[in-house]
Computed example of a mutant assay.
Amino acid sequence: MDYKTLKTFQTIVKYGSFVRAAKEMNYVQSTVTMQMQKLESDLGVELIERGNGKEIRLTEAGRLFHDQSLQIVKNMEQLQTNMSNWKLGETGHLRIGVTEPTASYRLPGLLKEFMAEYPKIRISLEIANTPALSERTLRGELDFALCSAPDLGTELYFEPLFKEEFVALLPEHHPLALKAVLSPEDLRPYRLLITSATCPYRRRLEMVMQETGNVALDTMEIGSMTALKFYVESGLGIALIPRIIAETQSGGTTIRSIERSLIDMTFGMVCKASAYPLQWAGQKLYQYFTMHLRERGQSVENLTDFIVNVTKGGEL
């Protein structure tokens, strides 16, 4: 007994005729007859009384079987529809990770637009730093993550989407506010507010400072990048933060560009190398992010040259 046979039986009952059922299902009549004979043989009961006329009548067993198989057929049809939608990327459950500031400043609007277009796709979101998201992606707990490039030597695939532009955020009347553009050397005499040691943004900042000879800086660690702006406003120091965060400031602070964009970070998609290219709903969401984040972020030049399979030792 299979779904096709059940569907044939339901169609016979609906139209009251083997001939009409065969025509509706685009079968030859002998196929319909053989399906019913096999069904009755498998069940060990007669379902349909076969008279001399073209119309059929159900036996008592046939009426019971019809009533109880109706829901089975409906469930199977719904299952087929769900599977078809899943293959088309129209339904599913996606688990994605994202770092700040994208999680708070870019993703809410994008997800609202995407979920309005694909209401049957359910999304679970985790916000953490790149190392944590990379680890969870590697363990299969996330389908993919939006973050900076993970450490080399892991079985992850990274594809850049845009550059996160960093600027200097200063107290409104800070001496450096007199300059239009700052260099890393300008920061040496002043306290620099930095994020935690595990933050890729801080690691990038420290690398740049070492390259320019600014190793012994006066620093104060603040655990949250989004909180840095409030500590700058209070006069505790200056901070290098993404422009998208800095531009939401109220009074008390000012923004200055950084020379040659030395602190900018490449931001992209991370997934398991074995899961790339993404499939079904994951591909739909990733294509949506690709289109909109590249439009709204600072473009990555020569993008093809930046695509990295981290397992092969690629580097940004």
Rank of each mutant, 00 (worst) to 15 (best):
S69Y: 06
R63M: 04
S84F: 15
F114L: 14
I121C: 09
V28C: 12
F65D: 00
Q35S: 11
L47F: 00
N75A: 04
L70S: 13
Q68Y: 12
R122V: 06
P119R: 07
E90T: 12
T99Q: 08
L64P: 00
A103Y: 02
L64E: 05
Y105R: 12
I48D: 07
L79Y: 15
N75F: 10
S69G: 10
T91M: 08
L94S: 03
R95T: 06
T33R: 02
M83E: 13
L107D: 12
P101H: 03
V32R: 06
M115F: 01
A132I: 12
L64F: 08
Y118N: 14
M76G: 04
E46Y: 04
V32T: 05
V32D: 04
L39G: 06
T31H: 15
N52E: 05
H66L: 01
F65C: 06
L58R: 05
L107K: 00
I72D: 06
Q29Y: 09
G89S: 09
E113P: 06
R95C: 02
V32S: 00
M34P: 01
L39R: 04
V28P: 10
M115H: 15
S124P: 01
L107V: 05
N82M: 12
A128K: 14
W86R: 14
Q71G: 00
E46Q: 04
L39I: 02
H93D: 14
A116M: 08
H93C: 11
R106Q: 10
H66G: 05
M34Q: 06
V45K: 07
I48H: 02
G89L: 09
P131R: 05
S104G: 07
N129V: 15
K74A: 07
I56K: 03
L58D: 04
M34I: 05
K87F: 10
E90W: 10
Q37G: 01
G51W: 04
V32C: 02
Y118V: 06
I56L: 04
Q71R: 12
M83G: 04
L79D: 08
S104E: 09
R63A: 03
L125D: 03
M115A: 06
L70N: 12
G92D: 02
R50Y: 02
M76S: 11
R95E: 07
P131I: 03
P131E: 10
N82A: 13
Q78C: 08
E40T: 00
M34V: 08
G89M: 11
L125A: 14
L70P: 03
I127H: 13
N82Y: 07
L107N: 10
L107I: 13
T130G: 13
K120F: 11
V73H: 12
K112H: 15
Q80V: 10
W86C: 07
T91W: 07
E49C: 00
L70K: 15
L64Q: 15
M34E: 00
L94V: 04
K74F: 08
A116L: 09
V98H: 01
I121K: 06
E49T: 08
L39V: 02
M36R: 05
G109C: 14
F65L: 07
L94M: 15
L88T: 02
P131F: 01
K54Q: 13
E126T: 15
L79A: 05
L94W: 13
L47Q: 03
P101I: 04
A132W: 10
T99I: 14
